[in-house]
Design a protein around this nucleic acid. Structure first.
Lengths: 196, 196
DNA sequence: TTGGCATGTTATCAGCGTAAACATAGTCGG
DNA sequence: CCGACTATGTTTACGCTGATAACATGCCAA
Protein backbone atom coordinates (compact mmCIF):
# COMPACT_ATOMS: atom_id res chain seq x y z
CA UNK A 1 0.00 0.00 0.00
CA UNK A 2 1.53 3.35 -1.03
CA UNK A 3 2.26 5.80 1.76
CA UNK A 4 1.71 9.06 -0.17
CA UNK A 5 -1.76 8.60 -1.60
CA UNK A 6 -3.17 12.13 -1.41
CA UNK A 7 -6.10 11.43 -3.73
CA UNK A 8 -9.51 11.88 -2.16
CA UNK A 9 -11.20 8.70 -1.03
CA UNK A 10 -14.28 8.52 -3.23
CA UNK A 11 -16.42 5.48 -2.35
CA UNK A 12 -19.93 6.67 -3.12
CA UNK A 13 -19.51 10.22 -1.91
CA UNK A 14 -23.29 10.75 -1.98
CA UNK A 15 -23.78 8.88 1.27
CA UNK A 16 -21.00 10.36 3.34
CA UNK A 17 -21.62 13.35 5.58
CA UNK A 18 -18.46 15.06 4.41
CA UNK A 19 -18.19 15.35 0.68
CA UNK A 20 -14.45 15.06 0.30
CA UNK A 21 -13.81 17.79 -2.22
CA UNK A 22 -16.95 19.88 -2.33
CA UNK A 23 -15.27 23.05 -3.49
CA UNK A 24 -13.98 21.45 -6.66
CA UNK A 25 -17.30 19.74 -7.24
CA UNK A 26 -19.13 23.08 -6.97
CA UNK A 27 -16.79 24.74 -9.42
CA UNK A 28 -17.13 21.87 -11.84
CA UNK A 29 -20.91 21.89 -11.60
CA UNK A 30 -20.89 25.68 -12.00
CA UNK A 31 -18.91 25.36 -15.21
CA UNK A 32 -21.30 22.72 -16.45
CA UNK A 33 -24.27 25.00 -15.81
CA UNK A 34 -22.54 27.82 -17.68
CA UNK A 35 -22.53 25.57 -20.71
CA UNK A 36 -26.30 25.52 -20.82
CA UNK A 37 -27.18 29.06 -19.82
CA UNK A 38 -25.95 32.50 -18.87
CA UNK A 39 -24.39 33.25 -15.51
CA UNK A 40 -27.45 35.22 -14.39
CA UNK A 41 -29.48 32.02 -14.64
CA UNK A 42 -27.08 30.14 -12.39
CA UNK A 43 -28.42 29.65 -8.89
CA UNK A 44 -26.41 28.52 -5.90
CA UNK A 45 -29.26 26.27 -4.83
CA UNK A 46 -29.36 24.51 -8.16
CA UNK A 47 -25.61 23.97 -8.15
CA UNK A 48 -25.81 22.58 -4.63
CA UNK A 49 -28.76 20.38 -5.58
CA UNK A 50 -26.94 18.92 -8.58
CA UNK A 51 -23.90 18.18 -6.45
CA UNK A 52 -26.17 16.47 -3.94
CA UNK A 53 -25.56 18.77 -1.02
CA UNK A 54 -27.67 21.20 0.99
CA UNK A 55 -28.15 24.73 -0.33
CA UNK A 56 -26.13 26.39 2.37
CA UNK A 57 -23.15 24.06 2.19
CA UNK A 58 -21.84 26.34 -0.55
CA UNK A 59 -21.19 29.03 2.04
CA UNK A 60 -18.53 26.89 3.73
CA UNK A 61 -16.38 27.35 0.63
CA UNK A 62 -17.49 30.67 -0.84
CA UNK A 63 -18.57 33.74 1.13
CA UNK A 64 -21.25 34.52 -1.44
CA UNK A 65 -22.41 33.85 -4.97
CA UNK A 66 -19.98 36.35 -6.50
CA UNK A 67 -17.09 34.40 -4.98
CA UNK A 68 -18.15 31.20 -6.72
CA UNK A 69 -18.49 33.09 -9.99
CA UNK A 70 -15.03 34.53 -9.45
CA UNK A 71 -13.67 31.01 -9.06
CA UNK A 72 -15.30 30.12 -12.38
CA UNK A 73 -13.62 33.05 -14.13
CA UNK A 74 -10.26 31.80 -12.89
CA UNK A 75 -10.83 28.50 -14.63
CA UNK A 76 -11.91 30.50 -17.67
CA UNK A 77 -8.60 32.36 -17.60
CA UNK A 78 -6.72 29.09 -17.64
CA UNK A 79 -8.83 27.77 -20.48
CA UNK A 80 -8.41 30.76 -22.74
CA UNK A 81 -4.68 30.64 -22.09
CA UNK A 82 -4.72 27.10 -23.45
CA UNK A 83 -6.53 28.33 -26.56
CA UNK A 84 -3.85 30.96 -27.00
CA UNK A 85 -1.01 28.51 -26.50
CA UNK A 86 -2.44 26.17 -29.10
CA UNK A 87 -2.91 29.06 -31.52
CA UNK A 88 0.60 30.41 -31.01
CA UNK A 89 2.16 27.00 -31.38
CA UNK A 90 1.36 26.95 -35.08
CA UNK A 91 1.90 30.51 -36.24
CA UNK A 92 5.13 32.22 -35.24
CA UNK A 93 5.52 35.52 -37.08
CA UNK A 94 4.11 38.69 -35.53
CA UNK A 95 1.19 39.20 -37.84
CA UNK A 96 0.24 35.56 -38.23
CA UNK A 97 0.60 35.05 -34.51
CA UNK A 98 -1.75 37.91 -33.77
CA UNK A 99 -4.28 36.71 -36.32
CA UNK A 100 -4.15 33.29 -34.76
CA UNK A 101 -4.64 34.79 -31.32
CA UNK A 102 -7.57 36.82 -32.57
CA UNK A 103 -9.23 33.75 -34.02
CA UNK A 104 -8.60 31.91 -30.79
CA UNK A 105 -10.11 34.79 -28.80
CA UNK A 106 -13.30 34.85 -30.84
CA UNK A 107 -13.60 31.09 -31.00
CA UNK A 108 -13.15 30.78 -27.27
CA UNK A 109 -15.90 33.32 -26.76
CA UNK A 110 -18.25 31.45 -29.11
CA UNK A 111 -17.39 28.10 -27.57
CA UNK A 112 -17.88 29.36 -24.00
CA UNK A 113 -20.38 32.20 -24.25
CA UNK A 114 -21.52 32.41 -20.67
CA UNK A 115 -18.05 31.88 -19.26
CA UNK A 116 -16.54 34.48 -21.57
CA UNK A 117 -19.18 37.03 -20.64
CA UNK A 118 -18.62 36.28 -17.00
CA UNK A 119 -14.87 36.79 -17.36
CA UNK A 120 -15.48 40.22 -18.85
CA UNK A 121 -18.24 41.27 -16.49
CA UNK A 122 -17.13 44.08 -14.20
CA UNK A 123 -19.33 42.96 -11.31
CA UNK A 124 -17.34 39.78 -10.91
CA UNK A 125 -13.96 41.32 -11.58
CA UNK A 126 -14.43 43.55 -8.56
CA UNK A 127 -15.09 46.60 -10.68
CA UNK A 128 -11.42 47.50 -10.78
CA UNK A 129 -10.39 49.31 -13.94
CA UNK A 130 -7.46 47.93 -15.88
CA UNK A 131 -6.67 44.94 -17.98
CA UNK A 132 -7.09 41.59 -16.28
CA UNK A 133 -3.78 40.15 -15.22
CA UNK A 134 -4.59 36.61 -16.21
CA UNK A 135 -2.04 34.59 -18.11
CA UNK A 136 -4.25 34.66 -21.18
CA UNK A 137 -4.43 38.45 -21.28
CA UNK A 138 -0.70 38.74 -20.85
CA UNK A 139 -0.22 36.49 -23.85
CA UNK A 140 -2.62 38.60 -25.88
CA UNK A 141 -0.86 41.80 -24.93
CA UNK A 142 2.47 40.22 -25.76
CA UNK A 143 1.29 39.21 -29.21
CA UNK A 144 -0.10 42.67 -29.78
CA UNK A 145 3.22 44.24 -28.83
CA UNK A 146 5.14 41.88 -31.09
CA UNK A 147 2.81 42.84 -33.89
CA UNK A 148 3.51 46.53 -33.79
CA UNK A 149 6.76 47.47 -35.53
CA UNK A 150 9.76 48.76 -33.62
CA UNK A 151 9.53 52.33 -34.86
CA UNK A 152 6.42 53.27 -32.90
CA UNK A 153 6.34 55.34 -29.77
CA UNK A 154 4.96 53.59 -26.76
CA UNK A 155 1.78 55.65 -27.04
CA UNK A 156 1.33 54.59 -30.64
CA UNK A 157 1.83 51.02 -29.59
CA UNK A 158 -0.78 51.44 -26.91
CA UNK A 159 -3.31 52.81 -29.38
CA UNK A 160 -2.59 50.00 -31.83
CA UNK A 161 -2.99 47.51 -29.07
CA UNK A 162 -6.35 48.97 -28.17
CA UNK A 163 -7.48 48.98 -31.78
CA UNK A 164 -6.59 45.35 -32.24
CA UNK A 165 -8.16 44.30 -29.00
CA UNK A 166 -11.27 46.30 -29.88
CA UNK A 167 -11.80 44.60 -33.26
CA UNK A 168 -11.34 41.18 -31.79
CA UNK A 169 -13.41 41.83 -28.70
CA UNK A 170 -16.09 43.66 -30.64
CA UNK A 171 -16.46 40.89 -33.17
CA UNK A 172 -16.68 38.35 -30.38
CA UNK A 173 -19.39 40.32 -28.58
CA UNK A 174 -21.39 41.03 -31.72
CA UNK A 175 -21.44 37.35 -32.57
CA UNK A 176 -22.17 36.40 -28.99
CA UNK A 177 -25.11 38.79 -28.89
CA UNK A 178 -26.48 37.42 -32.14
CA UNK A 179 -25.93 40.65 -34.04
CA UNK A 180 -23.54 38.96 -36.47
CA UNK A 181 -23.86 35.34 -37.59
CA UNK A 182 -21.42 32.81 -36.16
CA UNK A 183 -19.26 31.97 -39.12
CA UNK A 184 -15.64 30.82 -38.98
CA UNK A 185 -14.90 32.14 -42.44
CA UNK A 186 -16.28 35.52 -41.45
CA UNK A 187 -13.99 35.63 -38.44
CA UNK A 188 -10.98 35.07 -40.68
CA UNK A 189 -12.11 37.71 -43.15
CA UNK A 190 -12.74 40.35 -40.52
CA UNK A 191 -9.46 39.74 -38.72
CA UNK A 192 -7.42 39.20 -41.87
CA UNK A 193 -7.59 42.32 -43.99
CA UNK A 194 -5.91 44.84 -41.81
CA UNK A 195 -7.29 48.13 -43.07
CA UNK A 196 -10.26 49.40 -41.15
CA UNK B 1 -63.14 75.65 -21.39
CA UNK B 2 -61.58 73.94 -24.45
CA UNK B 3 -63.49 71.03 -25.95
CA UNK B 4 -60.55 69.02 -27.24
CA UNK B 5 -58.34 68.67 -24.17
CA UNK B 6 -56.86 65.20 -24.62
CA UNK B 7 -54.15 65.68 -22.01
CA UNK B 8 -54.36 63.38 -19.02
CA UNK B 9 -56.04 64.87 -16.01
CA UNK B 10 -53.29 64.91 -13.43
CA UNK B 11 -54.54 66.29 -10.10
CA UNK B 12 -52.47 64.42 -7.56
CA UNK B 13 -52.39 61.10 -9.36
CA UNK B 14 -51.19 59.34 -6.23
CA UNK B 15 -54.65 59.33 -4.69
CA UNK B 16 -56.68 58.19 -7.64
CA UNK B 17 -57.50 54.54 -8.17
CA UNK B 18 -56.59 54.71 -11.84
CA UNK B 19 -53.19 56.14 -12.51
CA UNK B 20 -53.85 57.89 -15.78
CA UNK B 21 -50.77 56.91 -17.72
CA UNK B 22 -49.16 54.09 -15.81
CA UNK B 23 -47.42 52.55 -18.78
CA UNK B 24 -45.42 55.69 -19.49
CA UNK B 25 -44.69 56.15 -15.82
CA UNK B 26 -43.33 52.61 -15.58
CA UNK B 27 -41.09 53.09 -18.60
CA UNK B 28 -39.83 56.38 -17.26
CA UNK B 29 -39.12 54.90 -13.85
CA UNK B 30 -37.42 51.93 -15.51
CA UNK B 31 -35.12 54.27 -17.42
CA UNK B 32 -34.34 56.11 -14.23
CA UNK B 33 -33.39 52.89 -12.47
CA UNK B 34 -31.14 51.95 -15.39
CA UNK B 35 -29.20 55.11 -14.67
CA UNK B 36 -28.20 53.85 -11.26
CA UNK B 37 -27.63 50.17 -11.89
CA UNK B 38 -27.58 47.33 -14.40
CA UNK B 39 -30.73 45.84 -15.86
CA UNK B 40 -30.28 42.64 -13.86
CA UNK B 41 -30.70 44.70 -10.69
CA UNK B 42 -33.98 46.17 -11.88
CA UNK B 43 -36.99 44.61 -10.18
CA UNK B 44 -40.58 45.01 -11.27
CA UNK B 45 -41.66 45.39 -7.68
CA UNK B 46 -39.25 48.22 -7.07
CA UNK B 47 -40.36 50.04 -10.21
CA UNK B 48 -43.98 49.62 -9.17
CA UNK B 49 -43.18 50.79 -5.64
CA UNK B 50 -41.45 53.93 -6.89
CA UNK B 51 -44.36 54.74 -9.15
CA UNK B 52 -46.68 54.27 -6.19
CA UNK B 53 -48.63 51.33 -7.49
CA UNK B 54 -49.07 47.70 -6.48
CA UNK B 55 -46.53 45.16 -7.67
CA UNK B 56 -48.88 43.36 -10.01
CA UNK B 57 -50.27 46.46 -11.68
CA UNK B 58 -47.33 46.21 -14.05
CA UNK B 59 -48.91 43.15 -15.61
CA UNK B 60 -51.82 45.19 -16.94
CA UNK B 61 -49.37 46.86 -19.30
CA UNK B 62 -46.60 44.32 -19.85
CA UNK B 63 -47.03 40.54 -20.08
CA UNK B 64 -43.77 40.01 -18.18
CA UNK B 65 -40.53 41.62 -17.10
CA UNK B 66 -38.87 41.06 -20.47
CA UNK B 67 -41.62 43.07 -22.14
CA UNK B 68 -40.91 46.09 -19.94
CA UNK B 69 -37.22 45.76 -20.68
CA UNK B 70 -38.02 45.58 -24.38
CA UNK B 71 -39.95 48.83 -24.08
CA UNK B 72 -36.88 50.38 -22.48
CA UNK B 73 -34.67 49.27 -25.38
CA UNK B 74 -37.05 50.99 -27.79
CA UNK B 75 -36.51 54.26 -26.01
CA UNK B 76 -32.81 53.49 -26.11
CA UNK B 77 -33.02 53.09 -29.87
CA UNK B 78 -34.61 56.51 -30.20
CA UNK B 79 -31.99 58.06 -27.96
CA UNK B 80 -28.99 56.66 -29.80
CA UNK B 81 -30.56 57.81 -33.06
CA UNK B 82 -30.56 61.33 -31.63
CA UNK B 83 -26.89 60.96 -30.77
CA UNK B 84 -26.22 59.91 -34.34
CA UNK B 85 -28.23 62.75 -35.84
CA UNK B 86 -26.36 65.28 -33.75
CA UNK B 87 -23.03 63.72 -34.75
CA UNK B 88 -23.89 63.61 -38.46
CA UNK B 89 -25.16 67.16 -38.47
CA UNK B 90 -21.65 68.48 -38.04
CA UNK B 91 -19.49 66.18 -40.15
CA UNK B 92 -20.61 65.45 -43.69
CA UNK B 93 -17.89 63.60 -45.60
CA UNK B 94 -17.81 59.80 -45.50
CA UNK B 95 -14.79 59.32 -43.30
CA UNK B 96 -15.49 62.20 -40.93
CA UNK B 97 -19.10 61.19 -40.72
CA UNK B 98 -18.19 57.67 -39.74
CA UNK B 99 -15.68 58.86 -37.18
CA UNK B 100 -18.33 61.11 -35.72
CA UNK B 101 -20.78 58.24 -35.61
CA UNK B 102 -18.22 56.04 -33.93
CA UNK B 103 -17.57 58.63 -31.26
CA UNK B 104 -21.30 59.02 -30.77
CA UNK B 105 -21.70 55.25 -30.47
CA UNK B 106 -19.04 54.93 -27.79
CA UNK B 107 -20.16 58.03 -25.94
CA UNK B 108 -23.75 56.88 -25.90
CA UNK B 109 -22.62 53.58 -24.45
CA UNK B 110 -20.58 55.29 -21.74
CA UNK B 111 -23.38 57.74 -20.95
CA UNK B 112 -26.03 55.00 -20.75
CA UNK B 113 -24.17 51.85 -19.73
CA UNK B 114 -27.06 49.76 -18.50
CA UNK B 115 -29.38 50.84 -21.29
CA UNK B 116 -26.75 50.18 -23.94
CA UNK B 117 -26.04 46.73 -22.55
CA UNK B 118 -29.73 46.01 -22.46
CA UNK B 119 -30.14 47.06 -26.09
CA UNK B 120 -27.44 44.61 -27.11
CA UNK B 121 -28.49 41.75 -24.88
CA UNK B 122 -29.86 38.83 -26.88
CA UNK B 123 -32.31 37.76 -24.18
CA UNK B 124 -34.30 40.94 -24.60
CA UNK B 125 -34.01 41.12 -28.37
CA UNK B 126 -35.79 37.78 -28.59
CA UNK B 127 -32.63 35.93 -29.47
CA UNK B 128 -33.14 36.51 -33.18
CA UNK B 129 -29.91 36.72 -35.12
CA UNK B 130 -29.43 39.70 -37.35
CA UNK B 131 -28.76 43.36 -36.97
CA UNK B 132 -31.35 45.32 -35.03
CA UNK B 133 -33.63 47.25 -37.32
CA UNK B 134 -33.79 50.34 -35.16
CA UNK B 135 -33.41 53.73 -36.75
CA UNK B 136 -30.05 54.18 -35.04
CA UNK B 137 -28.61 51.00 -36.51
CA UNK B 138 -29.82 51.89 -39.97
CA UNK B 139 -28.02 55.19 -39.70
CA UNK B 140 -24.85 53.45 -38.60
CA UNK B 141 -25.03 50.99 -41.45
CA UNK B 142 -25.66 53.83 -43.88
CA UNK B 143 -22.62 55.73 -42.67
CA UNK B 144 -20.53 52.58 -42.94
CA UNK B 145 -21.67 52.02 -46.51
CA UNK B 146 -20.92 55.63 -47.43
CA UNK B 147 -17.49 55.19 -45.97
CA UNK B 148 -16.46 52.31 -48.17
CA UNK B 149 -15.39 53.42 -51.64
CA UNK B 150 -17.39 52.58 -54.74
CA UNK B 151 -14.95 50.04 -56.13
CA UNK B 152 -15.63 47.34 -53.58
CA UNK B 153 -17.70 44.25 -54.10
CA UNK B 154 -20.69 43.95 -51.84
CA UNK B 155 -18.92 41.24 -49.88
CA UNK B 156 -15.94 43.50 -49.34
CA UNK B 157 -18.28 46.22 -48.20
CA UNK B 158 -19.88 43.80 -45.78
CA UNK B 159 -16.53 42.83 -44.30
CA UNK B 160 -15.51 46.48 -43.97
CA UNK B 161 -18.77 47.24 -42.30
CA UNK B 162 -18.22 44.44 -39.82
CA UNK B 163 -14.69 45.56 -39.11
CA UNK B 164 -15.76 49.11 -38.41
CA UNK B 165 -18.66 48.06 -36.27
CA UNK B 166 -16.39 45.67 -34.39
CA UNK B 167 -13.81 48.33 -33.48
CA UNK B 168 -16.45 50.73 -32.32
CA UNK B 169 -18.50 48.16 -30.46
CA UNK B 170 -15.43 46.51 -28.99
CA UNK B 171 -14.03 49.76 -27.68
CA UNK B 172 -17.39 50.62 -26.16
CA UNK B 173 -17.65 47.27 -24.41
CA UNK B 174 -14.07 47.28 -23.17
CA UNK B 175 -14.59 50.71 -21.64
CA UNK B 176 -17.97 49.72 -20.27
CA UNK B 177 -16.49 46.65 -18.64
CA UNK B 178 -13.72 48.69 -17.09
CA UNK B 179 -11.00 46.99 -19.12
CA UNK B 180 -9.99 50.26 -20.76
CA UNK B 181 -10.15 53.65 -19.03
CA UNK B 182 -12.95 56.01 -20.03
CA UNK B 183 -11.12 58.72 -21.91
CA UNK B 184 -12.54 60.91 -24.64
CA UNK B 185 -9.13 61.53 -26.16
CA UNK B 186 -8.50 57.79 -26.27
CA UNK B 187 -11.75 57.25 -28.14
CA UNK B 188 -10.68 59.72 -30.79
CA UNK B 189 -7.24 58.16 -31.10
CA UNK B 190 -8.52 54.62 -31.45
CA UNK B 191 -11.18 55.52 -33.98
CA UNK B 192 -9.04 58.01 -35.87
CA UNK B 193 -5.99 56.25 -37.24
CA UNK B 194 -7.51 53.82 -39.61
CA UNK B 195 -4.89 51.11 -39.89
CA UNK B 196 -5.48 48.17 -37.64
C1' DT C 1 -9.44 9.38 24.48
C1' DT C 2 -11.09 13.74 23.96
C1' DG C 3 -11.83 18.33 22.55
C1' DG C 4 -11.68 21.58 18.88
C1' DC C 5 -12.41 22.87 14.22
C1' DA C 6 -13.71 22.23 9.53
C1' DT C 7 -17.54 21.08 7.16
C1' DG C 8 -21.90 19.57 6.72
C1' DT C 9 -27.51 20.30 7.85
C1' DT C 10 -32.06 22.47 9.10
C1' DA C 11 -34.85 26.44 9.95
C1' DT C 12 -35.79 30.87 8.74
C1' DC C 13 -36.03 35.45 6.48
C1' DA C 14 -36.88 38.99 3.02
C1' DG C 15 -37.21 39.84 -1.85
C1' DC C 16 -38.27 38.35 -6.42
C1' DG C 17 -41.50 37.18 -10.80
C1' DT C 18 -45.90 35.77 -11.63
C1' DA C 19 -50.88 33.88 -11.51
C1' DA C 20 -55.71 34.10 -9.76
C1' DA C 21 -59.42 36.29 -7.78
C1' DC C 22 -61.47 40.47 -6.54
C1' DA C 23 -62.38 45.85 -6.68
C1' DT C 24 -62.99 50.13 -8.94
C1' DA C 25 -64.25 53.29 -12.28
C1' DG C 26 -64.63 55.07 -16.94
C1' DT C 27 -67.36 54.25 -21.32
C1' DC C 28 -70.98 53.10 -24.29
C1' DG C 29 -75.66 51.21 -25.80
C1' DG C 30 -80.51 51.31 -24.38
C1' DC D 1 -79.98 58.56 -17.24
C1' DC D 2 -78.81 54.09 -16.25
C1' DG D 3 -76.83 49.69 -16.27
C1' DA D 4 -73.44 46.45 -18.10
C1' DC D 5 -69.02 45.81 -20.15
C1' DT D 6 -64.20 46.51 -20.02
C1' DA D 7 -59.89 48.51 -18.73
C1' DT D 8 -57.13 48.99 -15.02
C1' DG D 9 -56.14 48.78 -10.54
C1' DT D 10 -55.51 45.64 -5.62
C1' DT D 11 -54.93 41.55 -2.52
C1' DT D 12 -53.44 37.20 -1.79
C1' DA D 13 -50.66 33.41 -2.67
C1' DC D 14 -46.97 30.24 -4.65
C1' DG D 15 -42.39 28.75 -5.52
C1' DC D 16 -37.98 30.29 -6.33
C1' DT D 17 -33.81 32.90 -4.90
C1' DG D 18 -29.47 34.55 -1.81
C1' DA D 19 -28.24 34.74 2.74
C1' DT D 20 -27.88 34.17 8.15
C1' DA D 21 -28.09 31.60 12.49
C1' DA D 22 -28.13 27.64 15.16
C1' DC D 23 -27.22 22.90 15.30
C1' DA D 24 -24.89 18.15 13.80
C1' DT D 25 -21.13 15.40 12.38
C1' DG D 26 -16.74 13.62 12.07
C1' DC D 27 -11.57 14.18 11.27
C1' DC D 28 -7.20 15.20 13.59
C1' DA D 29 -4.14 16.47 16.95
C1' DA D 30 -2.82 16.89 21.90
Amino acid sequence: MPTNDNSVNIQNSAERYHHGDLRSALVEEGLKRLESGPAEALSLREVARNVGVSATAVYRHFPDKAALLRALTEVGGERIAEYFKAAMAKERTGKDAFNAMGRAYVRFALANPALFRLMMSPAVRGGATGEPDSQGMQMLVGALNDLSGGKMSSEEKYIRRLQSWSVVHGLAMLMLDGLVPHDDKLIDQVLESRIV
